[in-house]
Amino acid sequence: MKLSRFASIVALTVATALPTIAMAADKPVVGLVMKSLANDFFKNMLEGAEAHAKKRGDYELKAIGMQNETDFESQLNGVENFITQGVDAIVIAPADSRAMVAPLKKAMDAGIVVVNFDVSLDEQAKKDAGVDLAFVGPDNRGGAKMVGDALAKDLGAGGKVVILEGNPGADNAAQRKLGFEDAVAAGKLDLLDSRTAHWETEEANAVFSTMLTAHPDIQGVLAANDSMAIGVVKALDAVGRNDIKVVGFDNVPAVAPMLKDGKLLATVDQFGSEMAANAIDKALAVVAGGPKLEGWVKTDIKLVTKDDVK
């Protein structure tokens, strides 16, 4: 995708120019590598990190994002730029669980503390590259299972459900799908169909409408993110079906009214705004001479239902 390269460079320049407060040489520099800042979830995360940097005040934050969910190249360039700049730590939400292993190894070889959050790097790819790197992040599979269980409890055994998947190939999409399938198996639900709507509202609306035509007896929908759940809710509104239960993932602000009037049964909050800040804390502890992180440092997830909406 050469097309988006120019824009990524612009975005990169702007993003790195943003936090220019206090360039004191003795403060450690943390390079934060985000995914698409065009997404509420990562936007909140960045704002959380910026607030955190201001509050702690003992490190300098440099943040970069990417154009869209599949723009690996600008992440790659961002990591390389951080290596060149000689930052003390790189805190990264990898766009691809395999592609980012090699550049991160380079960073570690250069003596930079690397913390992987949000999406875990692929175990096999890490092993192949000889990288030993901990993961700080939520259990997407566990979260999907949790919200799937809530649906299963509501429908009872034998409930007929469909899944709307995220982007094929994306790690969190795969994990959430597995979590949904775990819930389907545990709750003895009947899975009628499972298709991707590429995380998108409009596509979810169209794909779900068609699924509903094929299976008018659907009782529940498991959407791998809230954007798709919104498309499903709208499709149900359009045909006047209020007997079908929908669950989503992410707890974006737009679903609050839907949770409130029962159009969305539940969603999952991963506390995105705190996630980057948490990972930065962990990285700074290591920079300050603390022990190396190991394994999977799980972050909080919470089931959000009607009761949680004020």
């Binding site: 698409s36 997404n39 509202t201 609306n205 919104i230 498309g231 709208k234």
Partner: peptide
């Protein structure tokens, strides 16, 4: 009107 949201990332 159809989807009741306006997001800056639609239409890709």
């Amino acid at each position: 009107a159809r989807l009741n949201i306006a997001s800056p990332i639609i239409g890709i």
